[in-house]
């Protein structure tokens, strides 16, 4: 690693990191910045947990953008095997190569049943024995690619939703994460020259093994406070009026107090903010063409109708949507009204 390079992640101070986050419009609290900075400095994998939509995956993406490096993403799922994640031999290509060689030497009538034998003969005869197990036929999967980046910058390896993978895969991952090396029997051991920045995310659908947790630094992304969320909305949805953005956040905050099946996360807030912004845009366009309607001024507060029409952005369960009645809408309006005052403070 280029130790003197000021942009090397490991030698980055917290302020630099915060600044880089900010430049990418990623609003992080102090604890997050400290923990991420620690993970970078200690070159430890970072295990990120938190409610869905709280920006766990985004953290990996932002890190990659901040260090101007490759983001290698490994989405985990049940049944994910080491081959899918690490490397595979390109069998088709291998077979084709064998057959191609066979064709030039043995003529076109060689039955496929003897292809293996023939190829073995061929391999012995040629100067390069065992050529089908060569770089050329190696299909790099995310983990191997993270160990062998094209550049001299460590890539960001985002292992998403590790809890969905099987425990066997988790154990396999341990080996990779502890040494940053894998051995390919046919090729030899591949060691990372630049250990990747590893971010693991989990939604807690099952408990992770102690061994994995022990190797990682742990970060729990808290649901954002009103101020943080407001900041996020302002940055990500700049087209929305500031006051309306505050109302959006206040309403979402109020929503989270309800015992919904699926709590709206930050991602939902952003979706909703965009929806509201779009709705208002088209409304104001209509209003201008029809008549100069006084009610649809830019900073008009969110109406109950607007909430009802766009509720699908926030609540993703039919039962939850059913629970939004006039009474709750009334309370939401109150929260929105209070948001204006909070903004002025």
């Amino acid at each position: 690693m280029t130790g003197s390079d000021p942009t090397a992640p490991a030698s980055l101070s917290e302020d630099d990191l915060r600044e880089r986050f900010e430049r990418r419009d990623y609003v992080a609290d102090a604890a997050t910045v400290t923990t991420v900075s620690l993970a970078l400095q200690l070159e430890r994998p970072l295990l990120v947990e938190g409610p869905p939509g709280s920006g766990k995956t985004e953290l990996g993406k932002v890190l990659a953008a901040a260090f101007d490096t490759e983001l290698i993403r490994l989405q985990c799922y049940e049944g994910l095997t080491a081959e899918n994640a690490l490397y595979e031999w390109n069998y088709t290509k291998q077979l084709l190569a064998i057959q191609a060689n066979e064709g030039t030497v043995a003529g076109g009538d060689g039955p496929t049943a003897t292809a293996d034998v023939d190829s073995a003969d061929r391999a012995e005869a040629s100067e390069e024995p065992g050529t089908v197990f060569d770089e050329e036929f190696l299909l790099e999967r995310p983990l191997l690619r993270a160990l062998r980046p094209g550049t001299d910058r460590p890539p960001v390896l985002l292992i998403d939703e590790i809890d969905r993978a099987d425990e066997e895969f988790e154990a396999f991952l341990l080996e990779v994460l502890s040494d940053f090396q894998v051995s390919i029997p046919e090729l030899g051991t591949v060691t990372a020259s630049h250990p990747p920045i590893v971010i693991l995310t989990s939604n807690r659908t099952r408990g992770l093994s102690d061994a994995l947790k022990r190797r990682c630094l742990y970060l729990y992304v808290e649901p954002p406070s009103f101020e943080t969320e407001y900041e996020i909305v302002r940055r990500k949805v700049p087209e929305l009026d500031a006051v309306v953005a505050a109302e959006v956040c206040a309403i979402v905050e109020r929503f989270r107090e309800e015992a919904f099946l699926k709590q709206p996360g930050v991602a939902e807030t952003l979706d909703w903010a965009r929806a509201v912004a779009r709705l208002r845009e088209s409304n104001s366009a209509d209003a201008e063409s029809a008549d100069a309607g006084g009610e649809s001024s830019a900073a008009a507060s969110i109406s109950a109708g607007e909430i009802e029409r766009t509720i699908g952005c926030l609540l993703k369960e039919a039962e939850d949507v059913d629970r939004v009645d006039t009474e709750l809408l009334e309370q939401l309006r109150d929260a929105a009204a209070a948001a204006r005052d909070r903004l002025e403070d």
Partner: peptide, 9 residues
């Protein structure tokens, strides 16, 4: 933040 990252899993 540092202790939380290491002691809590």
């Amino acid at each position: 933040a540092a202790l939380r990252a290491t002691l809590v899993t």
